[in-house]
Simulated scan of single mutants.
Amino acid sequence: MEVIKLTFPLNIDKAVLPPLSMALGYFDGVHRGHQKVILEAKEQAVQKGLHSAVMTFDPHPSVVLGKNQKHVQYITPLPAKIKIIEDLGIDYLFVVHFTTEFANLLPQEFIDQYVIDLNVKHVVAGFDFSYGRMGKGTMESLPFHSREKFTFSVVEKFTSGDEKVSSTRIRKYIRDGKTVQLPELLGRFYQTEGIVVHGDKRGRTIGFPTANVDTIDEYIVPPLGVYAVKIKIGESWYEGVCNVGYKPTFNKEALKVSVEVHIFDFKEDIYGQQVTVEWHQYLRKEQKFTGIDELVSQIERDKQNAIEYFNKRLC
């Protein structure tokens, strides 16, 4: 997949691009509803003899247009989004740098410059996609703005449990710790990435060494508590149990939330490595213990509960 970063004014000549079938959207999470839009664009490309493409935007429009929100946490920060879209077999990904100038384009200007001028011959978007200044362009106005230069498909609402699958719904599930329910919406378990850093190394002194994962701050981290997780190190996946919290038994003054994974049957040195944590089952809330013995007993129970969870998944 070729990733092309676009700016305003447009910085690419359509003469260098093949005819495209393009999916339009922000696509945070690239959830099952998004995948339906993207795969429709891919299918139309096959049917019409075009190349497949996706257009997304960075940063999130609320960072640029919102008065109070200067930092947004994502389900899939841009590098993760690129990986998932590439895995869907798309030929081109256009990442538009979202600015106030770009946001002020009239709907017709957006279509002329960022669709027609990119040699797009077919457009696919969800029923609620909007474009142009103040979102005045809609899928109902698209036939007019197309100037008959391209055809288009509208993908209807995708639901799960009689409710629309949306990035907003998924963010709420993550923040509520409903991690085990996310595959129904995402089509996969929720994942975050980070670097393994040195911690206080107390875990190894009580028989439960942990990988202290400094999670990239663009990700939404599930709430405080203990989770059954998988962790990807290099190209291999391992099972483990993860504590999200402030380590109250040891540290009364910790300010930053820590993500610490005790990896089952693993003894390698992975400091400095980038890892992926895959969030499965919420096990219990974070709690403070009266002493080390009580803490060790609870961690052992957490470990057994996580092992039981993963064993059930294999059945």
Score class of each variant (00 low, 15 high):
Ser52Glu: 07
Val155Asn: 03
Thr151Pro: 05
Cys242Ile: 00
Phe129Ile: 13
Trp279Gln: 02
Val37His: 15
Glu268Asp: 08
Lys5Tyr: 14
Tyr190His: 10
Val16Thr: 14
Pro107Val: 03
Glu218Thr: 05
Gly126Ala: 06
Pro79Asp: 06
Phe144Leu: 12
Phe189Asn: 08
Glu40Tyr: 07
Glu156Pro: 08
Phe289His: 10
Asn305Thr: 12
Thr215Ile: 15
Glu239Trp: 02
Phe94Trp: 02
Glu268Phe: 05
Tyr92Phe: 15
Glu235Met: 13
Val180Trp: 09
Lys149Tyr: 09
Glu278Lys: 06
Pro143Trp: 03
Val123Asn: 01
Lys172Ala: 07
Val115Ile: 15
Gln281Tyr: 02
Thr215Asp: 01
Asp214Tyr: 02
Leu106Trp: 08
Asp117Cys: 05
Ala80Val: 14
Lys288Thr: 03
Pro209Trp: 05
Ala41Trp: 11
Asn311Cys: 05
Leu6Val: 03
Gln298Asn: 09
Lys67Gln: 06
Tyr26Thr: 14
Asp128His: 11
Leu283Phe: 01
Leu295Gln: 12
Arg171Phe: 04
Lys256His: 08
Thr192Gln: 00
Phe289Arg: 10
Ile75Asp: 06
Asn251Leu: 15
Lys67Trp: 01
Leu255Asn: 09
Glu235Ala: 13
Ala306Gln: 11
Ala53Arg: 00
Ile85Cys: 13
Ile111Phe: 11
Ile111Gly: 08
Val261Leu: 03
Ala228Cys: 13
Arg204Asp: 11
Asn243Arg: 07
Tyr114Asp: 09
His34Ala: 12
Pro107Phe: 05
Lys312Gly: 11
Glu253Lys: 15
Glu140Leu: 15
Phe94Ile: 02
Thr210Glu: 09
Phe129Leu: 12
Lys5Gln: 14
Asp91Trp: 01
